[in-house]
Design a protein around this nucleic acid. Sequence first.
DNA 1: CATCTAATTAGACAATAAGCTAAATATTAA
DNA 2: TTAATATTTAGCTTATTGTCTAATTAGATG
Lengths: 95, 95
Amino acid sequence: MNDAFKALSDPTRRKILQLLKERDLTAGEIADQFNISKPSISHHLNILKQAQLVQDERQGQNILYSLNLSVMQEAMGWFLGMIGTKGDGHDDERK
Amino acid sequence: MNDAFKALSDPTRRKILQLLKERDLTAGEIADQFNISKPSISHHLNILKQAQLVQDERQGQNILYSLNLSVMQEAMGWFLGMIGTKGDGHDDERK
DNA sequence: CATCTAATTAGACAATAAGCTAAATATTAA
DNA sequence: TTAATATTTAGCTTATTGTCTAATTAGATG
């Protein structure tokens, strides 16, 4: 979960996720969208993979990346908890 | 928005936000919850303030911090967009 | 005004992270 | 098996970040 937040803190990685939202892409197709060297993109992809935000699958010469939404949903749960009723779970706010 | 994601990437700062969810706290009260020096906490608070995730208000000798949920809601919007229908907005997926 | 408390600012330092080039691995194809 | 393509791994450099101590600012109080 901490890995996910760390991974999401980089704008390049967030953009990669947005690209993968449209469709699955190979490492090369992803790299083509950025002015960043392929090894650097590979590194970003690895960080996203560690955080379980993406999955990869070799398809012949290519490696196809796809979104893994389950961790993203977890992260969203964190926000929901944060936005929920102020003070929930501790103080007694009943009227 | 990028500042918000950056701010959220640190576990100490996320914990600060969770404390503030329960109730508004002074800088000192926040610092008391951590094994980290006051200046370091002050720095974290400043990052949260830059990201507009918290607000501060001086009250006499103390400075009271409180959550600002609007940016958090924006960030959650990002997740909602990500979790929404795959490929939305670009490919034609009508059946 | 002198002093005490609360909090921040300044400056230093070690660890982390993002980027690059060059080299290595894996797969396909000639 | 040699060559070509796709991707990753290794190693390095620079920038950013989290932490600390010491010094400063701001308000409250004797």
